[in-house]
Design a binder for these strands. Structure first.
Length: 831
RNA sequence: GCCCGGGUGGUGAAAUCGGUAAACACAGGGGACUUAAAAUCCCCCGGAGGCAACUCCCUGCGGGUUCAAGUCCCGCCCCGGGCACCA
């Protein structure tokens, strides 16, 4: 007994600040979270726990990052307590437009700013209690990392997956750079919201569509969040159909006669609906299509030229708007429908895109909404070739019908179903060389950026040899330190102004040449970082084979679904490419991926402009990192996101206080067994938490632990050590600092995360002596009876009928049917 | 337009192989302990009626299936996110 209770109380008060500092220092001193390369090599139960590394902004680590990382950290700590050797690295994704723009704004060089930001981020990452291995970290802007990013580029080049194309690209006039299609949102630049224009530039592309089939097919049996898989499938956009070739009709193209024998006189189209070929009443070429001049008649030439000029002026976004009226002009030329020999007019219109399929379509206004709209606008014939049930060949079309049905107005094919006709028509045309089956996917990955803040593309342009890769042993191509790195409107990267750097001898012929002045898309840096982590100890190679074979693929990856189609798709593609090069032994990088939801605040998105961003440091100062972590995980379903409400944090804070107080007040006998009723609750709790943590059901797992706490403390009873120890261990993934402290106070040496094991539940201890069964009469709840477990229907019914209220509702009625759900409910159906 | 999520008390949310709607927590109210505060402990807390026992109503809206529907089916409305003249 303490001589001075007041003093004693003071000493025992839960002080998050002191506890967290103590354990942060202790973990660091003992290297609890750091693995040496020898440990990496010898680990017996490797578990690679990955989370998306942050971009180290000047504003500091966002609470949304902490939300994401806490969920992942809980998983890592849980795995560790279950005997896994957990490798949990973190790094910094610091290249890219965001950093560069910020540096421009404050008038500094990002090379000087980034280290400060990283330092700041590191401090918060350590403070919130992440179990990070700081022995293995990456900074994508450090030459020790990006030399290998350049190496990845060269490897892909070696594999034939890199090619240079003159292509229309999205150009942001404000950022003065090319944007990937995914970086254009609703026609505006993702970053600065300027209207994006269209430009033609030579660019480096990664041929990701070569892997589209594999990227799509593998999804089927991957253990990933469903929403992420669906987003990827939609992005890949597999489209199966046929390529059909139409001859240009005789007499067309009088203005620019072509040699029909040369094979240039056929227009190829891609269609997913070859069954509607008889309904193709005209064709449309993209205005940029190379055959436009070949089909254009002399008297149509001025109109065609004018239209093409007008379209070229329009930006790619304006061009792609779906809600504007259809425009186009007739070329004066005709093509021949291979299925029936009909002469059909050839138009050009901007609703047909050069970048998809073949840049030309057969127009079937009867069964395609866009073609229908165009045909109406320009008075072109509309023919029905599919009849839905109850319709026939003559039924008028008020709008395009794209549904199922049988063929009409289609010669020999009349009466076939859509599915059968697709096959049959392609078969016939195939025999004549006019068609083949074809599958299309969406765009390749443009990796060129006309900017400063990125890894220079390791290519050298020589007038004699063309584009020549920098030899591997000459890497890195260092990014020169430029005083003025502002992008200009020349379409060239600011690196072109670094003359000494710019001029370099051709690796092939030795003559004077110059470097590629573009840097790579930031997504290339982040596309392979997880492959680098285990190998950061090696500066002589990118990916150490043994360590990589041991630790990869990644066991668990957790991150935001905003990266579903960018980062995650690129990472998969790069992994497949490196696998096929024989560099790594697996072709899918992440065994398991879970998307977490968005953390919002009081119903609204957090943003700097709204001024409603929560500072993690302020919360940690007030409540401690443990309470913050627990609260973030308690807010709502992790995969759905959460709504941060200021007052709600009180609940988790009280919970930790009660846990603290329970340990302080616990009965001192360490061998005293748990009270039976408490023990049952304990085993139920262990079971639930153990089942729910791997499924990221953190909020309900925490609720279960709170419930158990209510049992432990019911009516102010004195808790027993054996009732508390397992609780401290299962709370520990959420609140690691305070649980370490309590574990020590409960009398255990050696540290919780270093030596404790996750408790197991004993099924025999789950069984209640009695349980309550709900009693319904005609489906309405009328009472409750207490019976022994697994009681039979008859005895439960007998007990139920003794209940006064139940008896009252049964009075004067006959029980016709009894529905008994074991250990839950009985429903007496009476009339 | 298409594809995903989602809509439940004052609030954040639980419960979906159909089986007691609102667990857990916040806010609010009352009480215990305390000189006081903090922490802790107990009670109340969807709506209407009733002294009470209880009864009726309630999961965005309208239908349906079922002994039983937040959960399944049909038809809508609203919010959030993604994709988008992709042929």
């Amino acid at each position: 007994m303490a001589a001075n209770p007041t003093m004693d109380e003071k000493q025992d008060r839960y002080s998050p600040e002191a506890v967290e500092r103590k354990w942060r220092e202790r973990w660091e001193r003992d290297g609890v979270n750091r693995l040496t390369d020898a440990q990496l090599a010898s680990a017996e139960n490797p578990y690679y726990n990955l989370m998306m590394f942050p971009y180290p902004s000047a504003e500091g680590l966002h609470i949304g990052n902490i939300y994401a990382y806490t969920g992942a950290d809980v998983n890592g700590r849980f795995q560790r307590l279950n005997g896994k050797d957990v490798f949990q690295p973190i790094g910094f994704d610091a290249f890219g437009i965001h950093s560069e723009n910020h540096a421009l704004k404050v008038g500094a060089n990002p090379q000087d700013l980034i280290p400060r930001n990283i330092e700041n981020f590191t401090r918060t990452l350590q403070r919130f209690g992440g179990m990070f291995d700081w022995n293995h970290t990456v900074d994508t802007t450090h030459v020790s990392y990006y030399r290998w990013t350049q190496w990845v580029f060269l490897k892909l080049h070696e594999a034939g997956l890199v090619e240079r194309r003159e292509a229309p690209v999205n150009w942001c006039p404000s950022c003065m750079t090319v944007l990937a299609n995914e970086q254009v949102l609703g026609g505006l630049c993702e970053r600065c919201e300027s209207t994006v224009e269209q430009r033609e530039l030579p660019q480096w592309f990664f041929r990701i569509t070569d892997y589209a089939g594999q990227l799509l097919d593998n999804l089927a049996d991957m253990d990933w969040s469903g929403v992420t898989k669906k987003a990827q499938a939609a992005w890949i956009g597999r489209s199966q159909g046929a390529e059909v070739s139409f001859a240009i009709a005789e007499g067309s193209g009088a203005a620019n006669p072509v040699d029909a024998e040369a094979g240039g006189a056929r227009i190829r189209v891609f269609t997913t609906r070859p069954d509607t070929l008889f309904g193709a009443t005209y064709m449309v070429l993209a205005p940029e299509h190379p055959l436009v001049d070949a089909v254009t008649a002399a008297d149509a030439q001025p109109a065609v030229d004018a239209y093409r000029a007008e379209v070229a002026r329009r930006d790619v976004v304006e061009r792609q708007k779906t809600d504007k009226d259809k425009t186009g002009v007739f070329t004066g030329g005709y093509a021949v429908n291979p299925v029936n020999g009909a002469r059909i007019p050839v138009w050009i219109a901007d609703y047909v895109l050069m970048g998809y399929g073949t840049g030309a379509i057969m127009a079937v206004p009867g069964h395609d909404a866009r073609d229908f709209e165009f045909a109406q606008a320009f008075g072109l014939p509309i023919v029905r070739v599919i009849a839905a049930p109850g319709e026939d060949a003559e039924t008028r079309l008020a709008e395009a019908y794209s549904g199922d049905g049988t063929l009409v107005n289609s010669g020999d094919f009349d009466g076939l179903t859509v599915a059968d006709a697709k096959q049959a028509i392609v078969e016939r045309l195939k025999a004549e060389g006019d068609a083949k089956a074809q599958t299309n996917y969406l765009h390749d990955w443009c990796v060129s950026r006309q900017r400063y803040w990125g890894p220079p593309i390791p290519m050298i342009h020589c007038t004699a040899c063309g584009a020549v890769p920098v030899p591997e042993d000459e890497l890195p191509v260092e990014l020169p330190h430029l005083e003025d790195f502002r992008p200009d409107d020349s379409g060239q990267s600011p690196l072109a102004r670094a003359t000494d750097w710019f001029n370099a001898p051709c690796p092939a012929c030795g003559r004077s040449a110059h470097r590629d002045t573009d840097v790579t898309d930031n997504f290339l840096c982040s596309g392979w970082y997880f492959l680098r982590y285990p190998s950061t100890g090696r500066d002589d190679l990118a990916i150490e084979p043994q360590l990589t074979a041991k630790w990869l693929p990644v066991d668990s990856y957790i991150g935001g679904n905003e990266h579903a189609v960018l980062h995650l798709m690129y990472a998969r593609f790069l992994t497949m490419a490196l696998h096929d090069l024989g560099i790594i032994g697996f072709s899918e990088p992440f065994k398991r991926f879970r998307a977490h939801g968005l953390l919002i605040r009081e119903g609204r998105k957090m943003s700097k402009s709204k001024g409603n961003v929560i500072s993690p440091d302020a919360i940690i100062n007030q409540y401690g990192a443990d309470t913050l972590r627990l609260y973030l995980m308690f807010l709502g379903a992790y995969e759905q996101g959460g709504d941060y409400r200021g007052s709600g944090i009180q609940g988790p804070f009280s919970f930790l206080n009660r846990l603290w107080q329970s340990v302080a007040e616990a009965d001192g006998d360490p061998d005293l067994p748990p009270e039976p009723e408490v023990e049952r609750a304990l085993h139920r709790t262990i079971r639930q938490v153990t089942e729910q943590l791997p499924e990221q059901q953190f909020n309900t797992a925490i609720a279960a632990m709170m419930e158990y706490m209510n049992v432990v403390r019911a009516d102010g009873r004195t808790p027993r050590i054996k009732e508390l120890t397992p609780l401290v261990v299962i709370v520990a993934p959420f609140a690691p600092h305070v649980c370490e402290e309590l574990y020590e106070r409960l009398g255990f040496a050696g540290g919780l995360f270093a030596s404790a094991r996750w408790p197991a539940h004993d099924p025999a201890k789950l069984v209640d002596a009695t349980l309550n069964i709900a009693v319904q009469v005609n489906g309405k709840l009328r009472g409750e009876v207490t019976v022994s477990p697994d009681a039979g229907a008859e005895s439960v019914r007998a007990a139920a009928e003794l209940d006064g209220n139940v008896a009252r509702h049964l009075a004067g009625k006959e029980v016709r049917k009894v529905i008994y759900v074991r250990n839950k409910l009985i429903n007496l159906v009476a009339a």
